[in-house]
Design a protein around this nucleic acid. Structure first.
Lengths: 102, 102
DNA sequence: CACACATATGAGCATTGACACATATAGTTA
DNA sequence: TAACTATATGTGTCAATGCTCATATGTGTG
């Protein structure tokens, strides 16, 4: 297998993504979203976080393009625009699981 | 495709890993290592970081088990004990590349 | 042993980021 | 329009962390 060399720009971009995923509550929001679109109030209920905090994290995720808001009446539904991200998370989780088995 | 639900413990562990990868210089060290074992001085030269800083980050990575030290005389060689991590990084990089193409 | 080189570590500083509080905006309904 | 609900945002605080300086430890060599 040949592994690419990484330019520092690529590394920085990678790290930017990882930073977004590095905050447990923010990551939890992403994972809880899964493939469905949910209003903020649902996420608040599912995570047990304060509304302020959920909105705070959603803003970060939104600005990064990791979630997409869709207004429906008084509610704003958030969705993952790209399911592949979930697949990456899945693989990473699997990797961690195997590591622990040592 | 069915997506697992994530327990909060899993999420926290995932985020712990991402946090390690979220620091650009630390990630750069990992990427520069690739599949080879290299002494600290090499990493210092390759990254342009100070020796202190490289050692600082290597310690974090070492304590997390992401790199393994091997003393050879006066030098300490660092290696990735698990190549699959590189593959995950590779896939993530690819995902980012495709995203940008929109 | 003395000295030089390779690496590690502790202390202090500066920045960042998560969170809460209060408040603002947007939509709905009476 | 007024009152209510859903969501967003600005400000301040506190803790975490990256970085550097100075120094310690470890290893080979004269």
């Amino acid at each position: 297998m040949s592994i690419d060399t990484y330019s520092y720009d690529e590394v920085k971009e990678l790290s930017r993504l990882f930073k977004l995923l590095a905050e447990p509550n923010r990551l939890n929001i992403l994972c809880n979203l899964g493939m469905e679109c949910r209003p903020v109030s649902d996420i608040v209920a599912a995570t047990g976080l304060s509304q302020t905090n959920v909105s705070f994290h959603l803003r970060t995720l939104r600005e990064a393009g990791l979630v997409r808001p869709e207004r429906q009446g008084a509610f704003v539904y958030y969705c993952l625009p790209d399911v592949k991200l979930l697949s990456l998370l899945e693989q990473t989780k699997e990797w961690i699981r195997l590591r622990h088995k040592t």
